[in-house]
């Protein structure tokens, strides 16, 4: 039988990778929209996106738990579509993570899009590039560093998640038992040796990831800086 901690590691990585992909797919258009938006609703959407930064994870987890339960519409719709209960499932912790890590992806992208501005987009349009062409050949390469930052922060933050997952996912091995919860289990069982291994691994992993981002985004490599010169 597979080591439960390794299983937790696998579940964690799967959850974080999936969450990051989903966040990039929905966070990019949202960040673009916020960067270009000029009406008063902008601040409301920005506040909603930033809410997980200040809200206790248990508050978000509590409301998600209610929403995901079969008594309420989102949970009901999910059950009708998939035949399975949403609460305490892997899908639930991915949805929770997407909401919880949203600001870590949307904010760096929004800032990069705002900084990029219109000039280069106008210049490329005047050369015959349509909107998709402009996004893939101008926006994406110039804001590459911000995409890497957004993806890394989104991934790292999801790996470190605890409160939301505990509320909506519980502790089901292979399904919702992630590293942070496994660590909590070891501590509760006074198995400090195993807790140390997990804690040190999480600490070192996060450190390496963040150092890599800062190394990649050191001034010499910041493409976005060249735009503002």
């Amino acid at each position: 039988m597979i080591n439960p901690d390794l299983l937790a590691l696998f579940t964690t990585l799967k959850m974080a990778a999936l969450t990051t992909i989903i966040l990039l797919l929905i966070g990019t258009p949202l960040a673009w929209y916020l960067a270009k938006m000029q009406n008063r609703f902008k601040v409301i959407i920005e506040a909603i996106v930033a809410l997980p930064l200040v809200l206790p994870p248990t508050v978000l987890g509590f409301y998600l738990l209610i929403a995901f339960s079969p008594q309420y519409l989102p949970g009901q719709l999910w059950q009708q579509a998939t035949g399975q209960q949403l609460a305490f499932s892997f899908s639930a912790i991915v949805i929770g993570s997407v909401l919880y890590s949203m600001p870590f992806v949307v904010q760096p992208l929004q800032k990069a899009f705002e900084q990029l501005g219109e000039p280069l987009l106008e210049a490329s349009a005047m050369l015959g590039a349509n909107a998709m062409d402009r996004f893939f050949n101008i926006v994406l390469p110039i804001t590459k560093a911000s995409f890497i930052t957004a993806a890394s922060l989104g991934f790292a933050h999801t790996v470190g998640e605890f409160g939301v997952i505990l509320m909506i996912g519980g502790n089901i091995p292979g399904e919702t038992r992630v590293l942070s919860i496994a660590l909590f289990d070891h501590v509760e069982a006074f198995d400090y040796a195993k807790a140390h291994i997990l804690a040190i691994s999480l600490l070192a992993g996060s450190m390496v990831l963040l150092a890599s981002i800062y190394l990649f985004n050191s001034p010499r490599k910041k493409t976005i800086n060249r735009v503002s010169k």
Binding site: E122, A123, A125, M126, G128, N130, I142
Partner: peptide
């Protein structure tokens, strides 16, 4: 008609060369 479909060129005051 969108700018990219007008077949009109524009040289800007600030060059706007692509930095990447």
């Amino acid at each position: 008609i969108k700018a990219e479909r007008r077949n009109i060129g524009l040289v800007f005051q600030d060059s706007r060369l692509f930095p990447h």
